[in-house]
Amino acid sequence: MTEYKLVVVGAGGVGKSALTIQLIQNHFVDEYDPTIEDSYRKQVVIDGETCLLDILDTAGQEEYSAMRDQYMRTGEGFLCVFAINNTKSFEDIHHYREQIKRVKDSEDVPMVLVGNKCDLPSRTVDTKQAQDLARSYGIPFIETSAKTRQGVDDAFYTLVREIRKHKEKMSKDGKKKKKKSKTKCVIM
């Protein structure tokens, strides 16, 4: 069974824990209790493949930012979460993405942009803004509501699919490099 290491990042209060708990335990946590770091595991079937999701729910508070490099190193894919009623959390996505790329030393890291709290009427981040940002990053965008469960499975499952595509691409690139290195030079 394939294991996928997913990391949920975003500013404090955007609903990272609520999304994760909704996926794992099928219930909505409405009281806000700032996370330092929590880890969850769940076995699911995605596109006919049974897999184990190892999900790291991270601290959004700035005082825990020193811990970010460590979990970013171990993560295979990242859910970059903002709240649709919090423009600052949307603007912060850029910083999370840049930090992930720096730590992973790669421009090509599996990510999904997630606009959470889409059940709320007080939207300050337009869907088109988020779609445009995701398009500019070359990553999928999904709106979710941890409260109603809308888009929750889709967000995590899409990230797994992005990781699969990335692994497939990397193995193809690896095979191309191996083929090239088999060419021999004969000096007579």
Results as ranks from 00 to 15, higher is better:
T2F: 10
T2R: 12
T2E: 14
T2V: 11
T2H: 12
T2I: 08
T2L: 07
E3Y: 09
E3N: 09
E3K: 06
E3I: 05
E3H: 10
K5M: 05
K5C: 05
K5W: 00
K5R: 14
K5I: 03
K5S: 13
L6T: 04
V7S: 09
V7E: 07
V8I: 12
V8Q: 07
V8A: 05
V8D: 02
V8S: 04
V8N: 01
V8W: 03
V8H: 00
V9A: 10
V9F: 14
G10L: 02
G10M: 00
A11M: 13
G12C: 13
G12D: 09
G12P: 06
G12E: 09
G13M: 13
G13P: 13
G13N: 12
G13C: 14
G13Y: 09
V14P: 04
V14E: 12
V14I: 14
V14Q: 14
G15K: 00
G15A: 02
G15E: 01
K16N: 09
K16S: 06
K16R: 04
K16E: 05
K16F: 00
S17L: 00
S17C: 04
S17P: 00
A18M: 05
A18P: 00
A18N: 06
A18D: 04
A18Y: 00
L19E: 13
L19S: 14
T20D: 15
I21V: 13
I21P: 01
I21N: 13
I21H: 15
Q22S: 11
Q22G: 09
Q22F: 04
Q22C: 05
Q22D: 14
L23V: 08
L23D: 07
I24D: 12
I24Q: 15
I24V: 14
I24N: 13
I24T: 14
I24G: 12
Q25R: 14
Q25S: 11
Q25I: 03
Q25V: 04
N26Q: 12
N26I: 06
N26V: 06
N26F: 15
H27N: 12
H27D: 08
F28C: 04
F28Q: 01
V29I: 12
V29Y: 08
V29Q: 12
V29L: 13
V29P: 08
D30M: 12
D30T: 11
D30P: 08
D30L: 09
E31I: 07
E31L: 05
E31P: 04
E31C: 09
Y32C: 04
Y32F: 04
Y32W: 13
Y32M: 03
D33F: 15
D33Q: 13
D33W: 13
D33N: 09
P34L: 07
P34I: 09
P34V: 12
P34S: 03
P34M: 07
T35I: 01
T35V: 02
T35D: 00
T35A: 05
T35P: 00
T35R: 01
T35C: 15
I36N: 01
I36W: 02
I36R: 01
I36F: 11
I36Q: 00
E37C: 04
D38E: 10
D38P: 00
D38F: 02
D38M: 05
D38W: 14
S39L: 11
S39H: 03
Y40P: 01
Y40M: 06
R41S: 07
R41G: 08
R41L: 08
K42W: 03
K42Q: 12
K42F: 07
Q43K: 08
Q43W: 04
Q43D: 04
Q43M: 04
Q43R: 09
Q43A: 04
Q43T: 05
V44D: 05
V44C: 11
V44T: 10
V44H: 06
V44F: 06
V44S: 11
V45Q: 12
V45K: 12
I46K: 08
I46N: 09
D47Q: 08
G48N: 12
G48I: 07
G48H: 12
G48V: 07
G48E: 12
G48Y: 08
E49Y: 07
T50Y: 04
C51Y: 13
C51P: 08
C51Q: 05
C51W: 13
C51V: 10
L52A: 09
L52D: 06
L52S: 11
L52G: 10
L52H: 14
L53H: 04
L53G: 04
L53R: 01
L53V: 14
L53S: 07
D54T: 04
D54S: 04
D54V: 03
D54Y: 08
I55P: 02
I55W: 02
I55T: 13
I55F: 06
I55D: 00
I55N: 10
L56Q: 04
L56C: 05
D57L: 02
D57H: 02
D57P: 00
D57F: 01
D57A: 01
D57I: 01
T58Q: 04
T58E: 02
T58W: 14
T58R: 03
T58M: 10
T58H: 08
T58G: 08
A59P: 10
A59H: 15
A59D: 03
A59L: 15
A59F: 15
G60Q: 06
G60H: 12
G60K: 03
G60S: 06
Q61V: 15
Q61P: 10
Q61N: 07
E62A: 08
E62I: 14
E62V: 10
E63P: 08
E63S: 07
E63K: 03
Y64T: 15
Y64G: 15
Y64V: 15
Y64R: 03
Y64N: 15
